[in-house]
């Protein structure tokens, strides 16, 4: 591991001689992806996951797992794309992290910020991130017998990856439909946004303890 290696170690170079290290990280900063291509790919991902599962919880778990590594990567990528890259910063408190997710991450993935961010009144370690119209669910209508399913579990996996990577361990991030005919919440909002989805983020106890200590230290 320590000895410097020559360049002839079986590494295959692309035909244009450009490795991943020769590409600029900001090259695709403003690039847009075809929505049709994404929808097609996403449908394939769901059916791939569906072939190997027993129930809806299992399926959501698999979608979550598919999104998780993406979150780990996006965390560092988006942090390097801040205004002044040389003074690179990382979030150390819960709120800046959630704002990073609701603003920076959402803008990068969906081209707009998330619709609302709330803290649970009953549980201080639980946060709720709302999206009125998740892009991933745009072309998906779940059959009645699977009404529990929300395919935004994939996005929940991305969020979990970001939180975990930044050192904010979670008990899990889950996606739930709160629009249309489901119960709870404001009735007019439910009718206006039938696909409204909430991402429940439950932080682990040790994260909350640390947060409290840092808050006392005036940090």
């Amino acid at each position: 591991m320590s000895a410097p290696q020559g360049t002839t170690s079986g590494l295959r170079y692309p035909s244009n001689k450009k490795t991943i290290y020769d590409r600029n990280l900001n090259r695709s900063k403003n690039a847009e992806l075809s929505r049709a291509a994404f929808a097609y790919l996403f449908v394939e991902m769901i059916s791939y996951a569906q072939k190997r599962v027993k129930g809806i919880a299992d399926l959501e778990k698999r979608l979550n797992t598919q999104g998780y590594p993406l979150g780990l990567r996006l965390l560092d990528l988006l942090l390097t794309r801040t205004a002044n890259p040389l003074s690179s910063i990382r979030p150390t408190r819960i709120l800046p992290l959630l704002q990073f997710i609701a603003q920076t991450l959402w803008r990068h993935l969906f081209g707009r910020p998330a619709d609302a961010l709330e803290r649970s009144e009953s549980d201080p370690g639980q946060y709720m991130l709302y999206d009125n119209e998740p892009l991933v669910n745009q072309y998906i209508s779940t059959p009645r017998e699977m009404s529990q399913l929300n395919c935004a579990a994939y996005v929940a996996g991305i969020i979990e990856g970001v939180c975990d990577g930044a050192g904010f361990a979670t008990e899990g991030v889950t996606a739930h439909s709160v629009g249309g005919e489901s119960e709870g919440g404001d009735k007019t909002e439910r009718e206006m946004w039938p696909g409204r989805t909430v991402f429940l983020i439950q932080f682990k106890k040790e994260v909350l303890e640390r947060e409290e200590i840092m808050g006392r230290g005036g940090g």
Partner: peptide, 15 residues
């Protein structure tokens, strides 16, 4: 050090 005092914005430098 990594969770030490951060700026008021709740972020800390990587360096």
């Amino acid at each position: 050090v990594q969770w030490g005092p951060s700026s008021t914005s709740g972020s800390a430098p990587m360096y």
